[in-house]
């Protein structure tokens, strides 16, 4: 028998793989490294210190922006997850009909439309609404974040629904469960991992959005990413590295939870 082609046994494979990983993670590693710098430079090492972490934590503007980010992400992810769950059930539990594929495309539209286009569009629409209603609170940011979070919540939930054994719902109906009871007792409990995964993904996506937030936010509505962007325009100290590192930690945590949950079968 001929040996099957194996990419891992090709000459130079290990070298190339190592190089790729190195290039991928070098910038992030550098950023994390200098967050522990005792000096004021982001390029000259002057010894280990947690100084910039203390500074960042004590910085009221950072605290405020971080809390605002978390608040927006939490509310937007919840609304997006609920909408996505309903959309996923509607698109997987109805018999196929012409136009269903279009609906998938419509739900996933934010993944395809360039973010800058959505941002500009929202800026124009929201400024009009602001004039009409005189309201300039966080609602605009929450609405915008909800909109682009929906596909991120939708995809894992839909995947979960599609892999679910349909005879389970049928068996529930056979055992006298009304459609609502079958949903509450069978579909929903089995769907939870998908819903939680969808929420995590939506939350992280909202948390690190810059472009749309930058366009939509009113004065005094800095989120953590837009605050960091603003800081970079002025002076750069390892404080920004420290904030980034914390941010990175939170994102990694969420994405890890997402993977663990979505990998769990049944």
């Amino acid at each position: 028998m001929a040996r099957r082609f194996s990419v891992t046994s090709q000459p130079g494979f290990v070298f190339l793989a190592m190089l790729t990983f190195f290039l991928l993670y070098l910038p992030v590693a550098t950023l994390v490294f200098y967050s522990f710098n005792a000096g004021v430079s982001v390029a000259i090492w002057e010894g280990f210190s947690l100084r910039w972490y203390h500074t960042a934590m004590a910085n009221e503007a950072v605290q405020e922006a971080a809390l605002r980010s978390a608040f927006i992400a939490f509310i937007a992810a919840i609304i997006a997850t609920i909408s996505a769950t309903m959309a996923a059930i509607a698109t997987t539990r109805t018999p196929e009909y012409p136009g269903l594929t279009f609906k998938y495309a419509f739900i996933n539209q934010p993944l395809m439309v360039p973010e800058i286009v959505t941002a500009v569009a929202l800026l124009i629409v929201f400024s009009r609404i602001k004039i009409w209603t005189d309201y300039s609170g966080l609602g605009y940011l929450i609405a915008a974040h909800t909109a682009f979070c929906i596909p991120f919540a939708y995809l894992p939930i839909r995947a979960r629904l599609e892999s679910m054994d349909l005879t389970l719902e049928r068996a529930a109906a056979d055992l006298y469960a009304t459609p609502f009871q079958a949903f509450r007792r069978i579909t929903l409990p089995l769907l939870w991992p998908g819903i939680i995964a969808g929420f995590m993904l939506a939350f992280v996506t909202s948390l690190d959005d810059v472009v749309i937030t930058e366009f939509v936010k009113s004065g005094g509505q800095e989120t953590l990413p837009t605050y960091m962007l603003g800081q970079l325009r002025r002076s750069v100290t390892p404080e920004i590295n420290a904030i980034s590192t914390i941010f990175l930690g939170i994102s990694v945590l969420f994405v890890t939870i997402f993977f663990l949950i979505s990998r769990k079968k049944n």
């Binding site: 068996a171 006298y176 069978i186 409990p189």
Partner: peptide, 20 residues
């Protein structure tokens, strides 16, 4: 009548036991 209103029960080919 819908399935849940019929006094008839089914044993499914793949059993369809509720895994949770």
């Amino acid at each position: 009548l819908p399935p849940y209103a019929r006094p008839v029960n089914t044993v499914f080919q793949n059993y369809a036991l509720f895994p949770h």
